[in-house]
């Protein structure tokens, strides 16, 4: 069964990039451009993994994470942080991995594979 990944990033270029990169490697992707939109999509789509940008308008990454970690259905979903901010691993300590932009696509694919196969 195809695994579904939710991509949360406010930059449209990066959303396209991640969608195509992950799509080309056999994953199904859905996208959201900010934290509040992402909560609704996550609840509807029940993704197997979420890639999360930190700095976004309206609702930023950490708040989105707090919301899904209170949701029974979503709280065990692995989250991979992808951000240009420094020291991002402290922003969401429970994230399975943190990648700093610009990231190596192989490394992202490896992390995703390790977590959801």
């Amino acid at each position: 069964m195809t695994k579904k990944i939710l991509i949360v990033d406010d930059d449209v270029e990066i959303r396209s990039y991640l969608s195509e990169l992950l799509g080309d490697n056999g994953y199904e992707t859905v996208t959201a451009s900010d934290g509040s939109e992402a909560v609704d999509i996550a609840k509807a789509e029940k993704p197997d993994l979420i890639t999360l940008d930190l700095e976004m308008p309206n609702e930023w990454g950490p708040r989105f994470y707090r919301k899904i970690s209170q949701d029974e259905a979503l709280k065990r979903t692995p989250v991979v942080v992808i951000s240009g901010l420094n020291a991002i691993k402290y922003a969401i300590p429970k994230a399975v991995a943190s990648l700093t932009k610009p990231f190596e696509p192989e490394q992202l694919l490896k992390i995703v594979k390790e977590n959801i196969g």
Binding site: D11, Y17, E20, G84, K101, P102
Partner: peptide
Amino acid sequence: MSHGVKGMLTSLDGGIYR
């Protein structure tokens, strides 16, 4: 700026990949 630059570089990576 470093933050903005990182975003741009990521987008460039993305552009090249695509």
